[in-house]
């Protein structure tokens, strides 16, 4: 029980300390206003191009995409903030279990990502006067949590790069752009070339976006179990890879002396 309490306490504390929570104005700009302006931009764009067809699905899918702020940039801060403050060596040399340490740090970002996505959806519903069936909300919430968990797994993989690479802004922006492009939030996946469509299968959020559109536009739940299980499996694989990578990156950092590289 004490271990569980410690797990959650660490999650909350690391989130507060490492994610700019100490500066609410910055948080408001970066984590609330920026995602909402992104949602509004894509909502207006797809509404214009597709003449309003399937608008609710596109807006809900874009709301899910807002979690990228947490799953990529937030997850990156899980490691880079410590490096920036000069405490990364202490964290890496602590005797506590690294898997539990980094998973607890990721938890707050999964929750925050879900919060941003829900906020985005509420904003879209109010602004565009959309009607989404009430019973769809619970399903959407489960789908989003699993999708965001999966995206955070990939985010943590990229975050481990910071132990040997100084170019974290490059990696994080590359991943954020890839998620935006391959998830198919703003167009049907069929418009992409076949090889990109194949690549999208291994990218988190693709299934979440598809399920979101299916449920919101057509009330179609038929693929939910299959796609959700695949997304959960993908997320678990990403987290396992990231934990293995942390061990390897830690080794590289020790050998190359790059742990505090800025």
């Amino acid at each position: 029980m004490a271990a569980l309490q410690r797990f959650f306490r660490h999650s909350v504390l690391s989130y507060k300390a490492l994610f700019g929570w100490l500066e609410p104005k910055v948080y408001l700009f970066v984590m609330v206003l920026n995602p909402l302006s992104q949602l509004l931009f894509f909502a207006v764009l797809v509404n214009y191009v597709y003449g309003g067809e399937g608008l609710a699905g596109y807006i809900a899918a874009n709301a899910l995409l807002l979690c990228v702020m947490n799953s990529v940039f937030g997850m990156m801060s899980v490691i880079t903030s410590d490096r920036g403050m000069g405490t990364l060596q202490l964290v890496m040399s602590t005797p506590s279990n690294k898997a539990s340490l980094f998973i607890s740090r990721s938890l707050a970002h999964v929750v925050n990502g879900a919060f941003t996505a829900v906020l985005g959806l509420a904003f879209g519903i109010l602004l565009f006067g959309l009607s989404i069936p009430f019973d769809a909300f619970l399903s959407l919430f489960v789908i989003w949590l699993v999708s965001i968990f999966s995206a955070c797994g990939l985010g943590l993989i990229i975050a481990t790069f910071c132990l040997w690479s100084p170019s974290m802004h490059l990696w994080s922006n590359l991943l954020a752009s890839l998620l935006l492009l391959l998830s198919g939030a703003n167009y049907p996946l069929s418009v992409m070339p076949a090889w990109l469509e194949q690549l999208a299968v291994f990218i988190p959020l693709t299934r979440g976006v598809r399920l979101t559109k299916d449920i919101v536009n057509n009330g179609d739940y038929s693929q939910m179990t299959t796609l959700l299980s695949q997304e959960l499996l993908l997320g678990c694989v990403f987290f396992i890879i990231s934990l293995l990578l942390i061990v390897y990156a830690e080794y590289l950092a020790r050998v190359k002396g790059t742990m505090d590289l800025e």
């Binding site: 910055v26 970066v30 931009f41 509404n47 214009y48």
Partner: peptide, 26 residues
């Protein structure tokens, strides 16, 4: 708040200035 503003102004300008659609729809 330069950094916060820098991260914030990208999409609002795309939106308000009509980079990908005519501003007549705003």
């Amino acid at each position: 708040q330069t950094n916060a503003l820098m991260n914030f102004i990208e999409y609002p300008i795309y939106l308000v200035c009509g980079f990908l659609f005519p501003i007549s729809i705003l």
